[in-house]
Amino acid sequence: MAGKNLDPSSSPRALLGAELRVARERAGFSQAELGEPLFVSGSFIGQLEAGTRRMHIEFARQIDDILGTDGFFSRNCGAAAKSKYPDHFAAAAEAEALAKAIREYAPQLIPGLLQTEAYAREVFRAYQPTATEETIDELVTNRLARAALLSDPTTPLFWCVLDEAVLRRAGENTAILAEALRHIASLVRSRRIIVQVLPFSAGFHAGLDGALKLMSFDDAPPLAYVDGIGMGQLFDDPATVARHTLTYDLLTASALSPRKSLALVESVAEDYEHDQHA
């Protein structure tokens, strides 16, 4: 292993995780035993091996020392850490690509996986009003690339709760939001995603603290991601994930049924289309 480097063009995080599993088993360590001197859980080591967690350089150096891998992980964790997403979201975006199920609560904006090009452009321009067109183009391209996850007809399962505010937040060009809502309705009607709308009439609810994303995997523990303005945090602690899962369950219980939600999404889209024509 000492003389080999990973190819950064071919899912470096997944490759690094696979190499970690091989090296750990060759050295005779369980995941928990390797995690102990690193002061992390065995499940965290499992997430590194599954590629759902990023290996930071300080872990890489210690792993090289413990497993006797002659600097392999120190050399290659840089390639695995490279991301086209902001630092606070990179780990969540890369875990999202490996998830078998994604459940998301969106309080203000259409989730990135469901955004159209025009809608994403409006969002990024609002975030960065002084950015160049080249910067905005790159951000939009990366966001649309994430949405390719939904091109598979079966995986991942995507279940989203949209606050009604998401449906009502239109800019000067209401056609942009109308198109975005029609896109969501199309995905629902093709049975690719599940969408529920949390109406204003629900009043106070469990998700008032902000956006939430839950991800589950075939070969790694589940994760929860919460974010705010320019910040986000990924959780793997079972108790924390369970608490956020309860929050999501309460939101689905307060939301409209999928059938009524689809009707509302299409009705609001039609209203915005009429406004544009007028």
Score class of each variant (00 low, 15 high):
A2I: 07
L6S: 02
D7E: 07
D7K: 01
S10V: 12
S11V: 04
S11W: 00
A14R: 07
G17D: 06
E19R: 08
V22P: 00
V22D: 08
A32Q: 09
L34C: 14
G35H: 04
F39Q: 11
F39M: 13
S41Q: 08
Q47D: 10
L48S: 03
E49G: 12
T52Y: 00
R54S: 14
R54N: 13
M55C: 13
F59D: 06
R61E: 08
I63N: 02
I66V: 14
L67W: 02
G68D: 06
T69I: 11
T69Y: 01
F73P: 14
S74R: 12
S74H: 09
R75L: 10
G78F: 08
A80P: 05
A81Y: 06
A81G: 13
A81T: 09
K84H: 12
D87I: 15
H88N: 15
H88L: 13
A93W: 00
E94V: 08
E94I: 03
A97N: 10
A99F: 01
A101H: 06
E104V: 15
E104T: 14
E104I: 09
Y105R: 03
A106R: 02
Q108K: 07
L109N: 05
P111A: 04
T116P: 05
A118G: 09
A118W: 03
A118R: 10
A126L: 14
Q128K: 12
A131S: 14
T135F: 03
D137T: 15
E138D: 11
T141P: 00
N142F: 06
N142I: 15
L144N: 10
A147E: 10
L150N: 11
S151M: 11
D152E: 09
D152W: 00
T154A: 07
P156R: 02
L157I: 15
F158L: 15
F158R: 03
F158A: 06
W159T: 15
C160M: 06
C160F: 00
L162E: 04
L162S: 05
R168Q: 13
R169D: 10
A170C: 11
T174D: 10
L177M: 12
E179L: 06
A180R: 02
A180Y: 01
A180C: 07
L181M: 06
A185V: 02
L187M: 11
R189D: 10
R192Q: 12
I194P: 00
L198H: 00
A202R: 10
G207M: 05
S216D: 11
D218R: 14
D218L: 12
D219R: 15
Y225G: 14
V226F: 00
G230Y: 02
G232T: 15
G232W: 01
L234G: 11
D236E: 13
D237H: 07
A239L: 12
T240P: 06
V241T: 04
V241G: 01
H244I: 03
H244A: 05
T245Y: 00
L246H: 02
Y248D: 05
L250I: 07
L250W: 04
L251V: 04
L251M: 01
T252V: 14
A255N: 04
L256D: 09
L256F: 05
S257K: 07
A263K: 11
E266T: 06
A269D: 05
E270F: 04
D271S: 14
E273T: 13
H274W: 01
H277G: 14
